[in-house]
Design a protein around this nucleic acid. Sequence first.
DNA 1: TCGTTAATTGACGAAATGATCAAAAAGAGA
DNA 2: TCTCTTTTTGATCATTTCGTCAATTAACGA
Lengths: 107, 107
Amino acid sequence: MDTRERERLKLKSDVFKAMGHPIRLGVVEFLHDREMCVCDIVDHVGTGMSNVSKHLSILKKAGIIADRRDGLKIMYRLTMPCAVDFMKCVEGVVLGRLDDQRALITG
Amino acid sequence: MDTRERERLKLKSDVFKAMGHPIRLGVVEFLHDREMCVCDIVDHVGTGMSNVSKHLSILKKAGIIADRRDGLKIMYRLTMPCAVDFMKCVEGVVLGRLDDQRALITG
DNA sequence: TCGTTAATTGACGAAATGATCAAAAAGAGA
DNA sequence: TCTCTTTTTGATCATTTCGTCAATTAACGA
């Protein structure tokens, strides 16, 4: 694994890292089919505006969402529709993990 | 977003989080079509054995890979083939991000 | 221009993560 | 049993991340 390969992996893993937080993943799901302002997102996730704003900037820097101004509001939208497809796959992984845990207990 | 929803998101985001590190993403790609022992993975990623072992345990706990013993060796395999499909989508995001950066410079 | 609304930024402390070293398991074979 | 090989685990420290507060920016209308 040379330097070039490591840089390539860094670029890609940043996308996963950005989605690797419950609030940020919640935002991605929330935006899957519509544009929303920061205030809507704050209402939805239920934490402080400044916290949400920082999570949004992480998603934006990763290229997962984009924004535009509309008067006083900033509207955010998903720029990565394929993320939603991948969720099905991730759900499968989560269910598999739960099965493993069940097996540990039931034997 | 109630407690139940937050727990659901936590379970899912853990999968992304596990892939959100260059070494771990490199392992996922390396295992995409074959089983490998820890020693092979160490050779491939080029860092210490104990470091690799800890990254493997994170991927395993997330349900992304699984292991089996074969004599002295522990063989790891991918349990999430859909991860490889999703890579294409992530590559698109990375390229989009690079375009944005280029636009910043060229104006 | 002033006040209001919407959002971002900076500073800070607590908590989590990552790399490295040494020590410990766990199986294979003499 | 003793030793070698392969891998995991524990301790430690530096770095990063996360959430909260206060301050700031930006646009709108009166």
